[in-house]
Simulated scan of single mutants.
Amino acid sequence: MSETEHSGDRITEARLWRDNGWTARVIKNDDDDGWAVAMTPDGQVEPALVGPWTMGRDKKNPKPLDTSAFHTLVKTATEFVRRHEQQLHATLHQRVEIDHRGARVEVLLDIEPDEENPTATLRAMDADGAVLAEVKVPPSFKLTRSSASAWAEAGFSARVS
Rank of each mutant, 00 (worst) to 15 (best):
V107A: 05
E116I: 02
A90P: 01
L143S: 03
R123A: 14
R123S: 15
R123L: 14
V107F: 03
D128E: 10
Q94N: 07
R104T: 15
R82P: 00
I111D: 03
S140M: 14
K142E: 14
L108I: 09
H89F: 11
H93P: 01
S140G: 13
K142V: 15
P139Q: 09
N117F: 10
F80D: 00
E112H: 11
K136H: 03
E112F: 10
V107Q: 01
R145K: 15
T144G: 02
E115W: 09
V135N: 02
A133Q: 08
H84T: 10
H89D: 12
E79F: 05
H100C: 07
A120D: 08
E112S: 12
D114H: 07
Q87N: 10
R82W: 03
H89L: 08
E134N: 13
G129E: 01
Q94D: 09
R123E: 15
E112C: 10
P139L: 09
A127I: 15
R83M: 10
K142G: 11
L108E: 11
H84A: 14
E97C: 04
F141G: 08
R145L: 13
D110G: 06
T144L: 08
T78W: 02
Q86W: 06
R83Y: 07
F80C: 00
V135Q: 04
H89M: 06
A130H: 14
R95W: 09
F141C: 11
V135K: 02
A127M: 14
A90H: 05
G129F: 01
V105Y: 02
Q86S: 09
A130W: 12
K142F: 12
V81P: 03
G102K: 00
A103Q: 15
A133F: 08
Q94L: 07
L132S: 03
V131L: 08
P138W: 10
G102A: 01
T91L: 06
